[in-house]
Amino acid sequence: MLSFEDVAFQYEGEDLPMLDGLSFHIERGEFVSLIGASGCGKSTILRLASGLLQPAHGAIRAAGADIRTQRRWCGYMPQSDLLFPWRTVGQNLRLPLELRGGLSPAEMDARVLETLRRVGLDDCRDKRPAELSGGMRQRAAFARTLLTGSDLLLLDEPFSALDFITRVTMREWLLRQWEQTHKTILFITHDVEEALFLSGRVLVAAERPIRALRSVPVPLAMPRTTEDLAAPEVQRLKNELIGLLRKEG
């Protein structure tokens, strides 16, 4: 669904490249988390995958085709919800539909309402984002990402600004959404436990420049609950991953 082939990237004015000959692949329907210490280039990978940055070398493919030949191949969800304050929640969700065009206002409203129901915000359609709690805003932002209609979702630390309890609730919620929607998700986080809970596979960025990502399968069956994280093999894996990230720092 998403593959990097020998991708290199360097920010202007920096001595070291961020990525150098990086290749990896994500299968359709996978939930993959990418972890790494802050500043290691996780977000750079996501910005490359979403087309906001251009690689100096190599190719990035989504659904088999080079992303340079495509438009709207992914749904990108940034760290901050970025809901427009002048639009109601419903109007915010309409944005990707309006941009794509081809739907009548009635059809757009129907799609918005259906998606609001899916994320449990159907009574918030006419509210302003400012009236919502942090967790509800992230849910609305996720719903907006779903409405891009793309099968590939790129999520950049979407829960990092939330308080701990909301974060735990939100990751359980996200996992259910993934099970129901069958999307392919690349999820960036610096929280090892979050990565283990959510994904089938964890990619570790543990060098600079990033030449390869270490792929670590998570030994937990779906569906999962937060209690599953207490299993000894998961705890062992968690400590191992934390060790990897610390070595790099």
């Binding site: 910005r47 979403s50 087309g51 906001l52 438009r71 709207r72 992914c74 749904g75 990108y76 940034p78 901050s80 970025l82 427009f84 944005l95 990707p96 309006e98 941009l99 794509r100 891009t148």
Partner: peptide, 21 residues
């Protein structure tokens, strides 16, 4: 905010759409 412009870019927005919306 540039991140809002980025978001709209990933949604496939044109310059005109970014300006209007």
């Amino acid at each position: 905010r540039t991140d809002m412009i980025d978001l709209m870019t990933t949604f496939g927005a044109t310059r005109g759409q970014i300006f209007r919306k």
